[in-house]
Amino acid sequence: MIRTVWHIFLSLMVFASALVILPARVNAAPTTETAESAEEVQANYAKAEKTIEALDAPLYSAFTERYLLDEVKVLRQMLADHRVEVTEKMTDRELGVADKALMYATDTVTYFFYLIAGASTLLVLVGWNSLREIKDRASALANDEISRITSSYEERLEKLERELHSKSRHIAATQEEIELTNEVHSLWLKASQESSAQNKIAIYDQILALRPDDVEAITYKADAALLLGQNQWANALANRALTIDPENSHAKYQRACAHAESGYIEEALRDLSEAIETSEALREQAAHDPSFEKLRDMEEFIAMTQVSS
């Protein structure tokens, strides 16, 4: 029993010494002094073993045994506490390492996502600006093209509208001219059916009211005035017609008739010659016209009115 207790006590002492020495050996490099301490401990342990084997009687009392047992208990409790402490430290270190690793991984992922978000935001902004510029340019080009097409069609429509107005005015003028022509034609038919020179003059006045510059109506009115014996009036009407149309042969013929009946022989021959040069049909008419009765015996008149066979 005594030997067993001593063995246990010595084992605990050796283990306690090992606990003190091992951390130093773990943290420091092995040296010659450490090796000598280990050999010394081993030698002391062997010496204690021999001493214990040589004992014949107990070296302690019951109180000593109780003290040793209490010390062994305390040592065992210290060993247990030390184990718990070491385990806690190792666990704390492992948890710290895991926490740091997790934090590092979290920070890395967070920074990576921040980088992706920043790059995406930059790309979105650049892309949005590009799309907005493309949209604005497309809208501007479309507006310009629409404006150009609209302006072109507006110009065409304005031109077409002007042409339509011009044609409408022309058609209206043509219709008015047709109506006027029909009315004048009906007046000419009416004048041709009249036998009275006075009534013919009234109809010619209606024609001249519709067409003030109608040379034919003026010359026929001069002819009717000659039938009424109004030589000066006929001369004035012939001059009016020649003012409008200087080459009108009928007006020259009527003025020649007015001059002949008024006794202006030279003027009558001159106007008659010009009228015959313009219209050959007046030659035969002058030969039988009673207005030239005073000129019939004159050689110049005879030569002028002679019809060649």
Rank of each mutant, 00 (worst) to 15 (best):
H259L: 03
A209Y: 13
S309H: 07
V109K: 03
A234P: 09
E65V: 14
G127S: 02
T87E: 11
S130M: 12
Q42P: 11
S249Q: 04
M304F: 04
A119R: 06
Y264D: 01
A29C: 03
E94M: 03
A258I: 05
Y45Q: 08
S120L: 02
L95H: 00
E194L: 07
K159Y: 13
V126A: 14
E36W: 12
A217E: 08
L242V: 03
R3S: 09
T110Y: 03
T121A: 10
Y60Q: 14
A98R: 04
D107F: 09
I203M: 05
A268R: 07
K252F: 08
E280A: 04
E49Y: 11
G229Y: 09
A119E: 06
E53P: 00
R255V: 13
N27D: 12
L228A: 06
A197P: 07
D81C: 06
R169W: 12
E280K: 05
R270P: 02
A140P: 00
Y264P: 10
L79K: 10
D297Q: 06
Q232D: 01
E280M: 07
A258N: 08
I2R: 03
E300D: 01
L160H: 06
V20K: 05
S152V: 02
E155V: 06
M13H: 08
A217L: 15
I146P: 05
L115R: 10
S195Y: 10
A62R: 05
Y153D: 03
D144Q: 11
T4Y: 10
S168A: 12
P246V: 01
E154V: 00
V5P: 09
R270K: 14
T174I: 10
L141N: 12
L226E: 09
L69F: 15
E179S: 00
L10N: 01
I203K: 06
D213Q: 06
S249N: 09
V215I: 11
A48G: 08
P212N: 15
W188R: 10
D213L: 11
K294M: 09
L115Q: 11
V14P: 02
F15W: 13
T243R: 10
N182L: 00
Q232P: 02
C257M: 13
E261S: 08
V86C: 09
L68I: 15
Y111N: 00
E300N: 04
M1P: 08
A24G: 15
Q42C: 12
P58I: 13
A43I: 12
F112C: 04
S11W: 08
I149L: 03
S273T: 15
V14I: 15
K89H: 12
E293L: 13
V124C: 01
V184Q: 08
E49R: 10
D223Y: 15
R169K: 03
A256I: 03
P212R: 12
L164H: 00
L228P: 00
G127H: 02
L55Y: 00
V74Y: 11
S168G: 15
N182F: 01
A119T: 01
G263P: 04
V5E: 07
L295I: 12
L227F: 13
F63T: 06
E161V: 04
A54E: 01
K294Y: 06
V307K: 15
S291E: 09
S61E: 01
A105L: 09
K100Y: 13
Y220K: 12
Y153M: 07
R76Y: 15
Y104K: 05
A236R: 14
S192E: 13
R240C: 07
N44D: 14
I201K: 05
L189K: 14
I146N: 02
